[in-house]
Design a protein around this nucleic acid. Sequence first.
RNA 1: CGAGGUGUGGCUCAGUCCGGUAGAGCACCUGGUUUGGGACCAGGACGUCGCACGUUCGAAUCGUGUCACCUCGACCA
Length: 572
Amino acid sequence: MYVSRMFLPTQREVPSEAEIASHQLMLRAGLMRKVASGIYAFLPLGYRAFRKVERIVREEMDRAGAQELIMPAVLPAETYMESGRWSVFGPEMFRLKDRGGREFCLGPTHEEPFTETVRNEIHSYRGLPLTLYQIQHKYRDEKRPRFGVMRSREFVMKDAYSFDRDEAGLDVSYQAMYRAYRRVFDRCSLDYIVVDADSGAMGGSGSQEFMVKSDVGEAVVAFCDACGYAANDEKATAVPAPEAKTGVLLPAERVATPNVKTVEDLMKFFGTTSKKFAKTLVYRTDDGRLVAAMVRGDRELNETKFHNLVGATELELASPEDVERVTGAAVGFAGPVGLKERIELYADLEVAEMENFVVGANDTDQHLKNVNVGRDFVPTKVADLRTVEAGDACPVCGRPLGQCRGIEVGHIFKLGTKYSKILHCNYLDEAGAENAMVMGCYGIGVNRTLAAVIEQHHDANGIVWPLAVAPYHVTVVPVMASDAAQMAMAKDIHYRLEEAGIDVLLDDRDERPGVKFKDADLLGIPLRVTVGRKYADGIVEYKERTAEKPTEMTPGEAVDKAVAAVREALRA
RNA sequence: CGAGGUGUGGCUCAGUCCGGUAGAGCACCUGGUUUGGGACCAGGACGUCGCACGUUCGAAUCGUGUCACCUCGACCA
């Protein structure tokens, strides 16, 4: 491809709307342009890279035995009404009506149409197992799209769905996907970890996320270097770390604490550590229940865990009015003892281990000290409710946990029979008995994966594509476009590479060399062959994007070296 | 959805407080000189200053409304 003919709008300046490296570089290198908030057009160079990722995904899905199909992006409301998700998705779903007033949506995820299709066509165990997938645009009207394609409202997802006779079959299908995912992200040269994830509202028996390590990731993961435990912080647990006990229960006592509301205020007032307090937080569920959660003063409540425990669809902090009604006190003085209304009260594991601690008295400007679980109050249930922190003890081996941020590029999920039961996706076994199919679902965010690659592979000058996803493998740069002999040699190298099946650019523009080198670096083309000052002696320069300096060699050697490097890198 | 911010040529931004002929750099076009890490000189084109209404002799600038975009938070099978 001749650069002079390409639609490749690069920008010298950093676009003001882009915050993170991948977003800035995707705009600067002319990979994409924004059409609306969270909606992007891929330009030729970006689309090439996108298709490289897509191809890797497709190859690995096919290798794992999954079969590709394509569902419509526009789906009728009925498809999601049967499962109940027409209402569950709420405003996040892009909805539209046809001319007859019938309701449709742009598919946010496709469990329903896949399940429906399989239900309609497969009725026997003979048709199982089956894994189907598509690479499709998905639509979610995110409250806050950000970071370019990292969190967008239209995005491309590879979503696969497996259908098995039983749990054992699901395990096999799931493992096949797990291995395929590892291969996909390995081939993309991503540094990632696989973490246990919350399977909460989706039900099901297990779920793992593929997290690309990155400071700009929106997810927080806890991991243990010693034993390999790793989990999304929504799910991560740690060994409780109770304070030493004296075994002497002191009598509970009311203390006037005017304007002492926060844990920090309390520490000052009582002159002790936050580990001697317990916070009581009141939440409201979507069905109108008020529920309370207690965690130790130095801990954070993990809303996901609480959410799952309470069994609500929606959960949010109760309004001040609700809190005042339940506690009979201003916000900040809630406690487990003497609540005005009987509400469910859940205590974290560590709260259950506390002794002679301080809680709100359910009376404005009053706290209770020397409170003890069992004697002064009995929680509805004691459970793990806190968010883990770096340094907490690993739940598997007890060593300190580390924490890092991650970009979720893939998610694999054992759905079980959640959808097959609701949607009556059944099969007859050998004995003629009807059973619900056991399902799994597996997603990869294709454009997010592309952004993650850039996030992990760039430097001050631009993108540094791994060969496997580079839009072009090699760029041939004649230093003086006006020198016909030089240009002829560059064209010859370009031709020979192209003939060898290499994706190659020829920067034939009549620009100063500095401009071409800067652009080559910005675009991140992994290999560069420069035809310059020594071309008359039959010498060109070969340089890897990451190398400090070029190496001199003959054009033939440069071609051979580039071809070998590309073939080596693409050997899947 | 809550809070904050920004909308001026393709890009980055100044001008707005204090109303008076719309600016700079980069990019673009023409000619010339250049040519190993984003050249230089000369000339040129490109704007209803997000939109609407209002105040005023006069609005990029003041007021009201509205839209878009960005950041933080909340939310996110």
